[in-house]
Amino acid sequence: MISSAIVAGVPAVEVADLTVRYRRRVALDAVSMRLSGGIVGVLGPNGAGKTSLLSVLATVSRPDAGRATVHGRDVSSAVARSAARELIGWLPQRFDLSGSMTVQDTVAYAAWSHGVPVADCARAAIEALSVVDLEERATDRVRRLSGGQRQRLGLAAAIAHEPPVLLLDEPTVGLDPSQRVRLRHYLRAISTGRTIIVATHLIEDGAQLCDELVVLRAGTVAYHGSPQALADSVAEEGAGEDGSGVGGAGAPVLSTPLERAYERLVGSEDAG
């Protein structure tokens, strides 16, 4: 599915003047960006618009204005979005699993839901489970999995139909440090030829995982570029400064240039 969806010259994801409002609150305010591949981290504090952006791209929320496309398919119109849905894998921050279902069935049904023919679902499930090292648990009931394994199961379900665009909303939340490292490893492994958009409020994810960062602040794009460029910007400006001084008394100790740069963009509260 990946190769057939990609058209030369067409960005994987394109967002133009995208606006989303919840009653009077503006969640996204005329956001525009073009994403062409690799792992893109969407960073920002709570309420910055990360989930709203991913929800529009995942076709489960409609924008109030603007346009968003996935490999040229419009996700913002009710009519055209069905064509885009086959290209998208989506893992919401919190997802529902049936504890009585087996691990393999969970992924196989997810594959079918995303357009994989019935005859190919079992194979697709095993392949996806092998990516996240869960193939040995294929016949276990979901209720027997740990929290980290469930998160990996969710990832397997999202990639079983081999989508060219993968949308992950806070995939590392609730995981312990070793599980986070492992999950990042899996995401790295599947990123070839794919665009993975990871919404996160953890700088650590952005630093260790992403090729590209989009920092959202109050529904607008505060930064779009490489993690290195963001880190360099503060390193150059603040050469010779002691990181402990940033954020003032009581603020977390910021030890890396990327964290300090992020702090400067969004404020200290969410500089995880």
Partner: peptide, 8 residues
């Protein structure tokens, strides 16, 4: 997760 709202 077996049939998310985004599934075709």
């Amino acid at each position: 997760i077996v049939c998310p709202a985004s599934a075709p």
